[in-house]
Design a protein around this nucleic acid. Structure first.
Lengths: 135, 135
DNA sequence: GTACTCTATAACTATCTAGTTTTAGAAAGA
DNA sequence: TCTTTCTAAAACTAGATAGTTATAGAGTAC
């Protein structure tokens, strides 16, 4: 894979096991054993996935006794989101805000433990975005 | 790679060539030859990248004469953004809105042709998000 | 020091990836 | 029809990826 940061981050996210690990880590730090528990996969396999996440900057690690704690680092996810957001106006037809979209998505297929508590009210604002599409 | 949609999308984005293709397609439809021009890479290589993008649902194609037009489909990017946004409150320390962050990013390292025209004003609002972090 | 626990590394396999060059096929033009 | 243009497919290569089992090493407890 390409070694630039964005490629590493997207590459790390391109695996359901690693995405699941991130979701778990969003609840708090965890040891390798704790992280491996839900998966029908060997411990070294999980260690490798953690290494991929670490290389992408999505996880940092510390020692606690004989165990190693993994901790979520969300910074790179911001960069990834920023990249994606350039395309926002291609799919956001009605210009609703991202967190409102999110709220809707969560309402439709079950809110994960992570989500903010309440849906916020729509804020009306003008927008002079030039919609350029087509050749 | 895993075959679920999200994995395909993130996997497609995990390559700088493919991200560049998407950026180009954001300006409008293009033929394979047009897309291949800026790259020092063979035409079949570009065709393969386009196939990856197509499999991820990021591109649809149509025929025009002897050429094939590729068109950006941003829908899957919304899903990817939605996944990422679950981590928003991990990096969005001061709770600024995504598009404001974007504006700042664009201001700092050069606005791409894609971006909305103006930075919008900060809207003050309350937020009762429960910040849950740590074990 | 010895035993135990937790995790990383080594070594290996199978599969996927990204690229190449060459070739075939489809559509348009003369 | 014959030629040209544009793109996809075939066949191949090198290297990365995701998993395995077995083992080594580091830290704690005794």
């Amino acid at each position: 894979m390409a070694s630039d940061t964005l490629s590493l981050v997207f590459g790390a996210l391109a695996d359901p096991t690693r995405r699941a690990l991130l979701l778990r880590l969003a609840e708090g730090e965890a040891t390798v054993a704790q992280l491996a528990a839900p998966f029908s996969m060997s411990q070294p396999a999980i260690s490798k996935h953690l290494k991929v996440l670490e290389c992408a900057g999505l996880v940092t690690r510390s020692q606690r006794g004989t165990a190693r704690l993994s901790r979520l680092e969300a910074e790179p996810l911001r960069d990834a989101t920023a990249w994606l957001a350039r395309y926002q106006h291609f799919w956001q037809e009605s210009h609703e805000r991202l967190d409102e979209l999110l709220a809707a998505l969560q309402a439709s297929h079950g809110a994960p433990a992570l989500s903010p508590g309440t849906t916020r009210k729509t804020v009306q604002r003008t927008r002079n975005t030039t919609q350029r599409r087509g050749a």
